[in-house]
Nucleic acid binder design. Structure first.
Length: 183
DNA sequence: CTTTCGATGATCT
DNA sequence: GATCATCGAAAGG
């Protein structure tokens, strides 16, 4: 099984569900993603390339990391061809690797809250600016294929004001680790 | 269960 | 000075 990072973000967002993502051996399987495309008013790449979003215009299969609301680090997977500015936001994981490390970083008792949201994923995996632009197929990252078939659900994206009607949020149907329920 | 609101800082206008 | 792909706590039903 292989991921096609050259695909469009909607396709990659669906492909990524069920893959296990770890940083320094800490993480879980991807349960929720969001697509951000070229010419997408909700995307940080919409107004063109800047210092902040440069990684989005770099090679597919690399990380794009940014700080939101001054305190949360969010992790994206760059896709399409180099120079396009499309990516998939990792919104939630089902924790499987390094549970103790994540609990220490997050300081929450419930396993459902360890990585169920983009900011929570960032905190649980220790994501920050150092990882911006790094390839996802080499340490500290690791991506492992799904072990079972995935039942995909979709719905509108969250926390955006533009193009908010597009159903570009994807998740594993019925998972208790989704940041919010999905239709 | 729901809604509201403050925290916090880099980036862009 | 405004914006922002969020979170968590607090307040209200």
């Amino acid at each position: 099984m292989r991921l096609d990072f050259n695909a469009d973000p909607v396709s990659l967002a669906r492909q990524l569900l069920g893959w296990t993502l770890t940083v320094d051996g800490v993480g879980g399987f991807i349960v929720e993603t969001e697509a951000y495309d070229v010419d997408d008013a909700a995307s940080r790449s919409f107004k063109g390339r800047t210092a902040r979003n440069a990684a989005m215009f770099g090679p597919p299969g690399h990380a794009y990391v940014y700080l939101i609301y001054g305190l949360h680090w969010c992790l994206n997977v760059v896709c399409r061809e180099t120079g396009h500015g499309a990516a998939v936001l990792i919104r939630a994981l089902a924790p499987t690797h390094g549970l103790n490390v994540m609990r220490e970083r997050r300081r929450v008792a419930k396993i459902e809250l360890l990585a169920s949201g983009p900011g929570r994923v960032g905190q649980a995996l220790g994501i920050d600016k150092r990882l911006d632009g790094l390839p996802l197929d080499r340490p500290p990252f690791e991506l492992l294929p799904p072990i079972a078939a995935i039942d995909v659900a979709s719905g509108p994206r969250i926390g955006i004001t533009k193009a908010a009607d597009l159903p570009w949020r994807f998740g594993i149907a019925g998972s208790p680790f989704l940041s919010r329920r999905l239709g």
